[in-house]
Write a protein that binds this DNA or RNA. Sequence first.
DNA 1: TTCTCTACTGTGAACGCTCACAGCGTCCTT
DNA 2: AAGGACGCTGTGAGCGTTCACAGTAGAGAA
Lengths: 344, 344
Amino acid sequence: MSRTEQNGTGRRRPPTIHDVAREAGVSRGTVSRVLNGGHNVSPAALDAVQSAIRRTGYTVNRHARSLITGRSDSVAFLLTEPQERFFEDPNFNVLLRGCTTALAAHDVPLLLMIAGTEAERRRNMRYIAGHVDGVLLVSSHSGDPVAAQLHDAGVPLVACGKPPGQGSKVSYVAADDLGGARDMVRYLYESGRRRIATVAGPLDTPGGVERLAGYRATLAECGLPYDEALVVPGDYSRAGGEVAASLLLERAPDTDAVFVASDLMAQGVLTALEKAGRRVPQDIAVGGFDDSPAALAARPQLTTVRQPWDRISSEMVRVLLAQIGGEDPAAVILPTELVRRDSA
Amino acid sequence: MSRTEQNGTGRRRPPTIHDVAREAGVSRGTVSRVLNGGHNVSPAALDAVQSAIRRTGYTVNRHARSLITGRSDSVAFLLTEPQERFFEDPNFNVLLRGCTTALAAHDVPLLLMIAGTEAERRRNMRYIAGHVDGVLLVSSHSGDPVAAQLHDAGVPLVACGKPPGQGSKVSYVAADDLGGARDMVRYLYESGRRRIATVAGPLDTPGGVERLAGYRATLAECGLPYDEALVVPGDYSRAGGEVAASLLLERAPDTDAVFVASDLMAQGVLTALEKAGRRVPQDIAVGGFDDSPAALAARPQLTTVRQPWDRISSEMVRVLLAQIGGEDPAAVILPTELVRRDSA
DNA sequence: TTCTCTACTGTGAACGCTCACAGCGTCCTT
DNA sequence: AAGGACGCTGTGAGCGTTCACAGTAGAGAA
């Protein structure tokens, strides 16, 4: 008879490895071996243990295991963004969900940590060292020292997007921002536009830099001049896009296309254009970046560049687990895809 | 000399309570007492221990602590939604972030678990029992047995929104859906609308039911007849809203206002109305629900009902921690707020 | 047969912490 | 003056697991 036959409302003491061992008629050691891959265990013992586990409803006590192994078998998803971006940017959702499910497949729980303030950052850093096997880092702004700190502390780490100034020391997974920007600008060119402007992302983020570089390179490839009046900085926010577009219309009223470095900003651009009485795409074509829900919500719906967020998340998890397993840091760059809708 | 003076690239063995004790010239027991509230410790010893902790950079090993206390000092945020909703609904973001930061203030890490499929659900249930002190449950569909299961397993639990058919056994925190709907419908009535329709939410969710009930009750209070042609079911999605609005225009072309049970659906309604050539708000007023980013993204911007998501998350955490501390389950209902913009 | 090798099994000893207990002084009460 | 109560301290045991090691039996080689 197992000790856990009833599971009433009060919490019972959960079965331990001893209970399983007794139930199966073997020793702790054998049960432990079964739990950890089942090597050097006779078929009969394996069977007995497995059925005993099933009968008792045993689950390994991860605290006890972690205490001795030193591993925690959990990883942190660390977000170091000012909160507005987290709210506004639906990509985080996709990324977070993707990481959660990819990890779940390996039975590794995910700890969500958000470090908006300096105090939160310190608390999280304290926690991470020693309580978590690795970190999935989402932090785009380059002022952020957290990647370097974690790396110095010897914590396995994968960043989403290339962390600036880290050489090749830290792993990262990123979309091909430069290639995506190139595809979009070339597409605008090929649909006949010749005064192609851009609303850039923040230039302290790798994405912002790369997309601008792609814009610039493609202009050159197409034989178009680079005109500084056509380049307006933005901050990835809707409001920022609106401001940027007004500025652009003032500086270069003859613009006939805008490559906007995020869908959210593109929404703002659309608003400004509407206020200014410009028709999209007839008067001005607008190209976004991200293929976020905002792209579908926009009127007209945005032609944009899809980032492979689902693959990004699964690659991040793959690289992180590999690194925890002892492999070297790796960089992965994934292709983007042009999505044609109504705005260009 | 502390043993941890350098923190080079290789991971050092972190300082233990023994190290701190030696450093402070006291015993393990005293250090432990300082760590757990500092009762029955002399001022001198307290001081010595605290400075030793600072010097060594000691952090308590939570695995060792959990092993003996039986608590894990962590809680799960369990999401049992089909994935589309998670993506589309920005409220989850706010909720998730709110819970994370509220918990962080108590030094309690949050484990994110998503149970989209049955297999995931089972895995998560297994993990939760014994590895987590409590659960923040976000699951609106009533077919979902997870609330009952967790409750039966004796796991402290707080749901977001009233879980259907649980009597008063499980704690929950919810916005005043009925009151919010009432405010909106009354507002539409007071701005002169007399053919007020509604696009309802799914009726297997408490929110959907309550908002419809509020609509119906307010109609009665205002002396307006209840007309079934004016009530169209929806599914909280943008596409669902568009379909619903087309149906509505067909069934009741003289509608002059629509109370839509979510902003996302309201966006769809706006699209359908635009296609049908109706002006908003001149021809038809549109009222949303949620005050999500979608409300600002919509054209015209949505008049809507704000749910106090920030307070919901902090209340959920408060109630859960209280319950873990031994208090009884509690129900909390928080007031909503009417936000006037351009659509009504 | 005897020896070695291999496959399998059981047994302490840790991991770092908390908790209960016992031992101490010191102060108050009777 | 004796007895308790109280504040503070150190010590041993044990939480549930893994790991290293020692031991056993059976198979194959000499």
